[in-house]
Structure formats: C-alpha cells, structure tokens
Amino acid sequence: MTTTAATTATPPVDPLLERVRAGREFGPNVHSTLDVLQVLYDRILRITPTTVDDPDRDRFLLSKGHAVAGYWAVLAARGFIPADWLDDQGGPASRLGDHPDRLLVPGVEIGSGSLGHGLGLGVGTALGLRAQGLTDPRVYVLLGDAELDEGSNHEAIAYAGATGLASLTAIVVDNSSATHGWPGGIATRFTVNGWTAATVDGRDHDALHTALTGQDEHRPHVVVAVVESGE
C-alpha cells in the first residue's frame, strides 16, 4: 500500500546536500540517487520521524550504502536527523559515516556499505512482516546497477520471484557503472524470475512515482531508474 505524503513544506534538499559536501568533490553516485530518494520520501514511503519504530511503517533499505550524502540530506530535510549532524559527517563524534549504520541514525533501517546485502535483508524483512500479519507495510530496497554484480542479489531475485513476494520493491539506479554491463537490460534479470518491472528516467519525478506505484498484488516489483552515465 502506498499513500502520497502530505504536501507540507519541507526544507529544500540541495542546501543540506551542500552542507554535507562541505567543499568536497562528490562522485556521480550521489547525484544519481538524489531524485529517487526525494520521490520516495516525498510521495511514496509511509515513514515519518515519529513512526521510525512503528511495526506498520514502510521500510526503506539503502543497499548501495555509499550513496549516503543525498540520504543524509533527505533525512535531515524530512526531520529524521538534525541538520547540525551534517556538518561533521565522518568525524570522530559523528553519527553519520560514509556508509549508514542503523544503530546510529534514526530512520535508517539497515547498516550497509558492502554491496549485495540489502536485497536479502529486504526479502527477510518482507517475510517477517508477512509472518506477523503485517500486510500494509511495503519494503523498498535501493541498489545500483554495479551492485547487481554481486551474486547474492541474484539469490534474492530468484527466490523473491519464485515465491511471489509481493510486498517487495527493488529500485535499481542505473548509471551504467557496472564494469561488464547488463546486456539485454537490467529489468530482464528480474522479469525472467517473475517480477514486474518498470524502467524509467531516473530524473523524472512523475515517471518515478508512477513506476514506484506500479506493483501488482502477486509479484515483487522492480523499478529501474536510468540516469545518464557519469551523472
């Protein structure tokens, strides 16, 4: 189930991202992920700073944990963490590292950084919610196209498809960074295993919203968000 978040004014993300950046050069992965994160937190996820421990909340699992700068900025903009935390990211007293730690940051569902762990954790989370009769929450896992190189993802893709794990949505930000590419497209890796899939412009917020609400009730869903290489 998804609902559109209330359109109350939230601080713009860009100045907060600049605050995290603090003059450093950011890699393309930061910017390629930002639009998806904004659409998720603005229009898709049923999570607020007051429901981070609610069993009935949606779960968002950032599997590509290095895409963290935009994540911190969005979490600050939505009030999950104080904006002051952004100023010392990676510092000895900071809760915000170069990868997220769920025990240090409110609203962070998993600690990630080593690629290929989020989808398996997401499958387990979806199964755990189902086993407890929690049918409303949806589990969203954000990955990168290069992250799909890790074989652990393909264990999860095959199993979730075979068992029709319908409460799971994977989002793959495709900035063509996988060394050997994905001939035939990323979505086919999922659809051949029984997932539904939508491939959209990763900068187009309305297209992302449509794709992120395009699941059916029987199968897991993947959204491939394509951004230009090097963005």
């Binding site: 499958v123 387990g124 989370t125 074989g151 999860a156 199993y159």
Partner: peptide, 15 residues
C-alpha cells in the same frame, strides 16, 4: 547468502 540475509531481515521485524 540469502539464508543468512533472510534471517537478518526476519530478526529486524522482531522474529
């Protein structure tokens, strides 16, 4: 790998 990942996810939901 999935077996342990699933266990972690289950535990995150309280099982």
């Amino acid at each position: 790998q999935l077996m342990i990942g699933v266990a972690g996810g289950l535990a995150l939901t309280g099982l």
